[in-house]
């Protein structure tokens, strides 16, 4: 379900200050259901601050934002129930088995044992990883863990998933397999909100925004932005926008 005007992420003039420092400066953008939205920016541009607000973990200083129709000031618990989150840093419990991780996260989201069992089977089947169900996470290769972490993050069938540098450090083939999973997820109707430092991955997004110094410098489809700024590719575009 989306907000009043059909957007799953609807942000207006969103501002976050820490003392005198303006981490997010009047961000305005929206994301439609089923989109793959790339949230790009320089280090320290304010991406993490904004994502924390959109996930219901931090309150804005001013401005408005709704996630799946829920208000980021007042309905943060509702937001958390309706989103999934995956980052490279925090993904799975290394000393639990694959199934125990699914059961743990399913439990956190309040799913019944029966639903958890069914969802785990479905998700492992899609990954072709039924065989590793009882393996301990730390014994698995990184690429497998990344895919499992993604599945765990959508166990409760969220409306929106936040992926924070999900492909960082994985090999080039696994990175591409991961993007195929992202595409499938978006086709199933889950909105994908993703950050990455791989500029070729920016091309795989339906639309991207590029942040620098707390502001959104540009937003649009990769092709529109490249022609608008006369850039050869996304890397070129990024450097043009962030340097100036």
């Amino acid at each position: 379900m989306a907000g009043e005007n059909g957007y799953i992420v609807d942000v207006k003039e969103l501002t976050k200050k820490f003392g005198n420092f303006i981490a997010n400066d009047r961000l305005t953008f929206n994301v439609s259901p089923g989109e793959i939205f790339g949230f790009l920016g320089a280090n320290g541009a304010g991406k993490t601050t904004a994502i924390k607000i959109l996930c219901g973990l931090s309150s804005p200083t001013s401005g408005e934002a709704t996630i799946a129709g829920y208000n980021v000031y007042r309905e943060t618990e509702k937001i958390k129930q309706n989103i999934g989150y995956m980052s490279q840093q925090f993904s799975l419990y290394e000393d639990l088995t694959v199934y125990e991780n699914f059961r743990f996260y399913g439990g956190i989201y309040g799913l019944s044992r029966k639903v958890i069992r069914k969802r785990t089977e479905e998700l492992l089947h899609e990954l072709n990883m039924e065989k590793v169900k009882n393996r301990v996470i730390h014994s698995l290769p990184l690429g497998w863990k990344q895919k499992l972490a993604f599945s765990v993050a959508i166990i409760h069938q969220p409306k929106l998933i936040f992926l924070d540098e999900p492909t960082s450090g994985v090999d080039p083939i696994t990175r591409r397999q991961f993007w195929e999973m992202i595409y499938k997820t978006a086709q199933d109707g889950i909105t994908v909100f993703i950050t990455t430092h791989y500029m070729d991955e920016a091309e795989y997004c339906g639309r991207v925004s590029i942040m620098a110094e707390g502001k959104i410098k540009a937003i649009g489809s990769p092709n529109d932005l490249k022609s608008q700024y006369d850039a050869h590719n996304m890397n070129d575009l990024f450097i043009k926008l962030v340097r100036n």
């Binding site: 320089a42 280090n43 541009a45 990024f238 450097i239």
Partner: peptide
Amino acid sequence: TTGVDAVSRS
């Protein structure tokens, strides 16, 4: 340069 943006990397 891991986790560093494209500008800082260059």
